Simulated assay, not measured.
Amino acid sequence: MPALAFVVEQLVQWKYGAAGGVGMFLLSIGIKTRSQRTASAGAVLLAVLLAGPVL
């Protein structure tokens, strides 16, 4: 399972740059520590990156 998370994080970072890596990092840390604020911050950052070209 950790290998899959690493691969997904690398793919996001490759496509969306450092901001995507930070978003994935915040999301994964928030889920592991059960911190809603951290997970939400990561999810919002990733959502903004994904919706950026549309907006």
Rank of each mutant, 00 (worst) to 15 (best):
M1P: 11
M1I: 09
P2D: 14
A3H: 09
A3P: 08
L4I: 08
L4W: 01
V7Y: 08
V8L: 14
V8P: 00
E9G: 12
E9A: 13
Q10D: 15
Q10S: 14
Q10W: 03
Q10L: 13
V12I: 15
Q13R: 13
W14Q: 13
K15L: 12
K15A: 12
K15R: 15
G17P: 01
G17K: 04
A19W: 05
A19K: 14
G20S: 07
G20R: 03
G20F: 01
G20C: 01
G21C: 06
V22A: 11
V22C: 06
M24P: 02
M24T: 10
F25R: 10
L26T: 03
L26S: 09
I31H: 08
I31T: 12
I31G: 08
K32C: 15
T33Q: 15
T33D: 14
R34F: 08
R34C: 04
R34W: 09
S35N: 15
S35P: 09
Q36A: 12
Q36Y: 14
R37Q: 06
T38K: 09
A39M: 03
S40G: 10
A41N: 10
A41G: 11
A41L: 15
G42Q: 04
A43C: 09
V44Q: 02
L45K: 06
L45F: 01
L46F: 02
L46Y: 00
A47Y: 02
A47I: 03
V48A: 10
L50S: 05
A51L: 15
A51W: 03
G52A: 12
G52E: 04
G52Q: 11
P53E: 05
P53D: 00
V54P: 00
L55Q: 07
L55R: 09
L55H: 02
L55I: 14
L55S: 06
